[in-house]
Every structure is written in structure tokens, then in C-alpha cells.
């Protein structure tokens, strides 16, 4: 049994990560690792970067094709896709967010990891509404690129 089946928390080993170069360009990191009957991410991608042979397959992303447009982030019902883009020592992480209050650009929000544990504060640099889901982009230290996956606005 995988650890995440017991706790709900993925580890980096469960994921196929992009390279440094690909991260610089900015790509979608898909944290969807089980065979579930779902495929809207495949349909949403304008450059056909995500593929699946049948609806129960695990989505496979071609990081070279991905342009980091974020369409898949907005549509994924599992809220399992994040955009990650690095620049020098910083990283921009875009997170699907469905809580209130919605932060504003410039706000400082609490960063949370996959366990919901606090990882310090980060600045909100972009807020995009996609239907009722909001995609919030935060800017933080590069070491958090594969760590931070949620934000808390209330405590900020």
C-alpha cells in the first residue's frame, strides 16, 4: 500500500517531475496518480500536452508541449493541477482556490504544504477567476516549488 492511500499526502516520489529547464518555462504539475474515470484536463488543453488512452488512465503530461496556460488547472475537478514556474531563486506557484475570502494582488498569505502545515508567508502576484474557482499565483522561494500546495488567506 502506498503511503498516500493511508494519509492522503503524496510524496515527491509518487510524481514525475519536470526538469529545471521545463520549470523555467513554467509548466503544469499534475498530482493525479490513480486510475479514476476522469478526463476533462485532456479536453481542456489547447496544445494537446496531456494524454490518456482511455478515461481511466492516469493523465500523462508532455512538459515540452505544455505552455503553462492554466486551462487544465481551472477545469480539473480534483483541483489536482498546479502551475509552477521558476525564475532565479524564486518560484511562482498557481493554486486552484475555492474558499473565502479571495485574496488580492499584493496580499501576503499563509503557505501550506500537502499536509496543511504552515510554511511561512508569500505574496499574491496574480488572481484569476475561472468560473467559481479562483487561481491564485503566489511568489516565494524556489525551495517551496514542490512543497507548497495551498494557501490560507484568513490568518494573513
Amino acid at each position: 500500500m502506498k503511503e498516500y492511500e493511508k494519509t492522503g499526502v503524496l510524496s515527491i516520489e509518487d510524481l514525475r517531475l519536470p526538469s529545471e529547464e521545463q520549470l523555467k518555462k513554467g509548466v503544469a504539475v499534475i498530482e493525479c496518480v490513480q486510475n479514476i474515470p476522469c478526463n476533462p484536463c485532456v479536453d481542456a488543453c489547447p496544445v494537446k500536452a496531456i494524454s490518456m488512452r482511455n478515461i481511466n488512465d492516469i493523465p500523462v503530461i508532455d512538459y515540452d508541449k505544455c505552455t503553462g496556460c492554466g486551462n487544465c488547472v481551472a477545469v480539473c475537478p480534483g483541483l489536482a493541477i498546479f502551475l509552477v514556474k521558476t525564475k532565479d531563486d524564486t518560484v511562482f506557484i498557481s493554486i486552484p482556490y475555492e474558499f473565502l475570502p479571495i485574496p488580492n494582488v499584493g496580499d501576503r498569505v499563509e503557505m501550506l504544504d500537502r499536509r496543511g502545515e504552515k510554511k511561512g508567508k508569500a505574496e499574491v502576484v496574480r488572481v484569476r477567476r475561472a468560473g467559481k474557482t479562483t487561481i491564485v499565483t503566489i511568489k516565494t522561494e524556489k525551495r517551496f516549488a514542490m512543497v507548497v500546495r495551498n494557501i490560507r488567506v484568513k490568518d494573513a
Partner: peptide
């Protein structure tokens, strides 16, 4: 349930 659903509540600290 699906891991993606578990992950959503887990990363809120539940």
C-alpha cells in the same frame, strides 16, 4: 475515495 479528493481536505489540515 479518490486520492485527489483526499488531498484537497488534507492540504487544508484535516
Amino acid at each position: 475515495g479518490y486520492h485527489v479528493h483526499a488531498a484537497k481536505v488534507r492540504r487544508c489540515g484535516v
